[in-house]
């Protein structure tokens, strides 16, 4: 029984990291139909920033990380994505691939490909015991942060002027611009937000893994991508739950599958993804403007 509860706790905590990562990808997708694979590298660069600032007072290092990643996200928008904004989503996607490849190789050039171990906020790794259930503080924090950021962004989108403009742009970018919304500004803010989200993921991820390596991005971006679509394109809540589902399904399969099938776990996870896509083509939480309009 304890094992079952423990596994559920594990599942939710793995899901929370994926959910955060999906939130960033879902946000940009909602606003500008961009699947940003380079977000994985935003996170990775955040991790390297933390590695370099190890030894600094942690809040300062965290602020620096947020600053660096937001700057990077804004630069990416300005230099790479703005010129292809009106192209089809496929071109934007390949652009994000190229950007991701570029950033990865710059990291390899600067830091080499060998992983670098570093230790930040190790206290977070220690568990809190509730009865016999072990919950690492980091996971509690991750879940709280995910919930907090989701609420914060939801409020931002509903209550602030720029948030409302962003939602308008998500529904119909051209129409929004005709109505006087400054498209550039809206998108820049969206990029800045994903920068913040990526930096937060970087901090949580670094605290968990204690390692900086140039290849961390792919898995996070991939899960974010999958989560956004199964959650319901354009729906932030959907993206978060999509990420959660991928994490929970992964951990539960790991726990339930017999040993000889456990190595095939990923195949089962992605079979579930295909099943969701076929059964609920619009995603679990249908977002605004996810249907192709006639």
């Amino acid at each position: 029984m304890i094992y079952v509860i423990q596994t559920l706790v594990d599942a939710v905590s793995v899901g929370a990291v994926y959910a955060l990562s999906a939130l960033g990808i879902g946000l940009l997708f909602g606003v500008m139909r961009l699947v940003n694979f380079a977000q994985g590298e935003f996170v990775t660069i955040g991790i390297y920033t933390l590695m370099l600032t190890v030894g600094l007072w942690f809040p300062l290092a965290a602020i620096l990380t947020v600053f660096v990643v937001v700057l990077l996200a804004l630069l990416a928008d300005r230099l790479a994505f703005k010129p292809v904004r009106d192209a089809d989503p496929a071109t934007m996607l390949i652009t994000s691939f190229a950007l991701s490849y570029l950033l990865q190789n710059v990291l390899v050039l600067i830091f080499g490909a060998r992983p670098i171990g570093f230790n930040i906020i190790p206290e977070l790794g220690l568990p809190v015991m509730i009865g016999e259930i072990r919950i690492p503080r980091l996971n509690i924090l991750t879940i709280c942060v995910a919930a907090g950021l989701l609420t914060g962004i939801a409020l931002f989108l509903r209550r602030t002027r720029i948030g409302i403009e962003m939602r308008a742009a998500a529904v119909d970018f051209r129409m929004a611009r005709l109505l006087g919304i400054k498209g550039d500004r809206v998108i820049a803010v969206a990029f800045a937000l994903t920068g913040v989200l990526s930096a937060v993921v970087a901090i949580l991820f670094a605290a968990q893994t204690g390692t900086a390596a140039p290849t961390y991005g792919l898995q996070l971006a991939l899960v974010g991508f999958v989560a956004t679509v199964i959650g319901g394109m354009g729906s932030l809540v959907g993206a978060v739950f999509g990420g959660m589902i991928v994490g929970v399904v992964t951990v539960c399969l790991q726990a339930l599958l017999p040993p000889e099938l456990r190595v095939f776990r990923e195949a089962f996870v992605y079979a579930v993804v295909i099943a969701i896509l076929v059964l609920r083509p619009d995603g679990l939480f249908q977002g605004v403007g996810s249907r192709e309009r006639v």
């Binding site: 094992y3 594990d10 793995v14 994926y18 996971n139 290849t215 792919l218 898995q219 951990v251």
Partner: peptide, 14 residues
Amino acid sequence: HGLNDTSIAGQISR
């Protein structure tokens, strides 16, 4: 799976 897993919480619990 070293490339797909970001956490081995489940394996640790087992």
